[in-house]
């Protein structure tokens, strides 16, 4: 079983602050992490490898410093890691990103072998679109299974996999043939504390660098210029001011709160 996991390096959302004066995000000093959903994709792939054998490859598109994310992936049990890094990718929207990742993955396939399961996180916590996974699946023309919460059954002989995925009001279990692409929810698994030999192996495994010249990526489909969507402007939502503290006895507090929200309750037709 060969898994290929797509991971994105993102700023740790918990530490990003907003500069309300300039309307931008302060990213300085904010540590970069693997997109939290993607860590569950790596974990799922490694668990399948542990059970059925094979290997886990990881591909990340990003700036050179994203090699740290890949080092982490190795430490979690990945075997081969690839960093797709080139100026021509800068400013790609999801259409261009899924193209670049698809084309970069061709190189991984060439080096490591055909892929049985592609994995992506459900969503990146910075761009927040949840579109890249579906985009890659479409380009590979493999079945897409989003919002996976359980890998129910893997049958390497029949080359089939059963997955439980989240629906708006419940779950559904689907069966797809491999290769397929799965996007992962946080509840898919618990990230294990990796054994030390994984980390030692990780420290010894190099990150393979890919760019537009050592792959077959067509630069005319990447980057800001070749992305159909453009960002017209970015701004910060108005800051919420710290409000009023309500004090007094329990009865007083609850009465005051009621008085404060009564107009709203009226407007909602609840009073």
């Amino acid at each position: 079983m060969h898994s290929l996991v797509f991971i994105k390096q993102v700023p740790d959302a918990a530490q990003v602050r907003v500069d309300y004066e300039t309307g931008t995000l302060i990213r300085e000093g904010v540590p970069a992490i693997i997109n939290p959903f993607d860590t569950h994709a790596i974990e799922a792939a490694v668990q399948i490898k542990d059970k059925f054998g094979g290997s886990v490859s990881v591909l990340c598109m990003g700036p050179p410093m994203a090699d740290e994310a890949l080092k982490k992936a190795l430490a979690m049990g990945a075997d081969n890691v690839f960093l797709l890094s080139d100026r021509v990718f800068a400013g790609s929207d999801t259409l261009a990103t899924s193209y670049a990742l698809w084309a970069g993955a061709q190189k991984v396939i060439q080096e490591v072998g055909p892929v049985d399961i592609f994995w992506a996180g459900k969503q990146a916590i910075d761009g927040d679109t949840a579109q890249t996974g579906p985009g890659i699946a479409t380009r590979f023309d493999v079945p897409l299974v989003t919002y996976a919460v359980e890998i129910k059954e893997v049958d390497p002989q029949a080359r089939k996999i059963k997955i439980v995925r989240l629906l708006e009001g419940g779950t559904e279990t689907v069966e797809v043939p491999m290769p397929c692409l799965i996007t992962t929810e946080e509840t898919l698994n618990h990230i294990r504390f990796a054994p030390l030999p994984y980390l030692i192996k990780a420290a010894r495994t190099p990150v393979v660098l890919l760019n537009s010249s050592n792959t077959t990526i067509d630069a005319s489909q990447c980057g800001l210029k070749n992305s159909p969507t453009k960002v017209k402007k970015a701004f910060t939502p108005p800051k919420r001011e710290r409000g009023e503290m309500i004090e007094g006895s329990l009865d007083e507090i609850v009465n005051t709160v009621y008085a404060k929200i009564e107009p709203m309750l009226k407007q909602l037709g609840k009073v």
Binding site: L25, P228, A234
Partner: peptide, 17 residues
């Protein structure tokens, strides 16, 4: 649309497609 978990709003357009 909101990005960065609602910390940044972006106005997107799609001029040529």
């Amino acid at each position: 649309r909101p990005t960065f978990g609602g910390n940044l709003m972006a106005t997107i357009f799609c001029p040529d497609n």
